[in-house]
Design a binder for these strands. Structure first.
Length: 287
DNA sequence: AAGAGGCCCTGATAGC
DNA sequence: TGCTATCAGGGCCTCT
């Protein structure tokens, strides 16, 4: 479900609601996620004070005052829900499940604060929670990931030299988190459209102008999407249940058979699979 | 070493 | 009101 913009929207809303708060209770209802939630998870989190909520790529990071960290990932279908109700926050009270905005199945985890709790829901279970015990280990955990598009390291030269002798197509590189972190299947198609690059194009064939455009439009698309509250193509919502609106700005994603939106372009938007992920592009203006 | 392919899971939707 | 096939915003592992 979430790419960098959606995860950032979740981070921002968590920051408003739970920063500086102390965890007073943790309930794990289902430990089965990508990695099993360890049996001492509740004990470790209980009593921790959150001093920061950060994000790297599509990962969220809770920093605790005791210098340990909890990282989590939403996978394809993970969502965080906020329950703000002093009265219903008694842990023995389950009536809040009747709230229409809260899912009834697949609630894996609940974290309680004074007057507030957050619930992690994940039908497909590709998300996960992990405890990281030091700053060094946190750094190591993300060591294999490439820079985010916003990082100054992610520039024309980085792309151009990275692509040298690479036979893979450019779409796959945008999805390769070792090359660049945070871009997912939606934004990859959007970035390539704005850059006028065909998603099937071999990376080694891209010139410097192509590389520069990818840098510029990666940043633009992700920033615009964050400003719009993310994209809600199925049911992405921020933690308070508000939908994002960037899906209204899609130029190619889910626009199969529509006319190309580029000024004076007579092309048609096509959908094709690349590595089993649907890929949208204009058959005329993306070379 | 790079790259292709499969797999982890449930749910919504399309087509018969 | 059935069944089956396909697809979905991610990432990791294995094989060649």
């Amino acid at each position: 479900m979430p790419e960098l913009p959606e995860v950032e929207v979740v981070r921002q809303s968590l920051d408003k609601k739970i920063r500086y708060r102390k965890i007073i209770k943790v309930i794990v209802r289902n430990r089965n996620l990508r990695f099993k939630i360890p049996s001492n998870f509740e004990k470790i989190l209980n009593g921790q004070k959150i001093i920061k909520i950060e994000r790297f790529s599509k990962y969220l990071i809770l920093s605790f005052s005791s210098n340990i960290f909890c990282i989590f990932h939403l996978g394809m279908s993970g969502t965080i829900h906020l329950v703000e109700s002093g009265k219903n926050n008694n842990i023995t009270n389950t009536s809040f499940y009747n709230s229409p905005s809260l899912p009834k199945k697949h609630n894996h985890l609940e974290i309680f604060f004074k007057d507030i709790r957050i619930i992690y829901n994940d039908p497909r279970r590709f998300g996960f929670f992990q405890i990281i015990k030091s700053k060094d280990l946190l750094k190591k955990r993300f060591n294999h990931l490439g820079p985010e598009p916003f990082n100054s390291v992610f520039d024309e030269e980085y792309l151009y030299s990275f692509f040298k002798n690479k036979k893979k197509n450019i779409k796959n590189f945008l999805l390769d988190q070792n090359f660049v972190s945070g871009i997912g299947n939606i934004y990859a198609s959007e970035i390539l459209f704005l850059s006028k690059i065909n998603p099937f194009k071999k990376a080694s064939l891209l010139n410097k102008k192509n590389c520069k455009d990818i840098v510029i439009f990666s940043r633009k698309v992700l920033l615009d999407a964050i400003r719009e509250g993310g994209s809600s193509i199925r049911d992405f919502k921020n933690i308070s249940g508000k939908k994002g609106s960037f899906q209204k700005n899609f130029k190619v994603y889910q626009q199969e058979n529509r006319n190309c939106k580029r000024f004076k372009c007579k092309g048609i938007i096509r959908k094709k699979n690349i590595s089993n992920r649907s890929t949208f592009f204009c058959d005329k203006c993306q070379k």
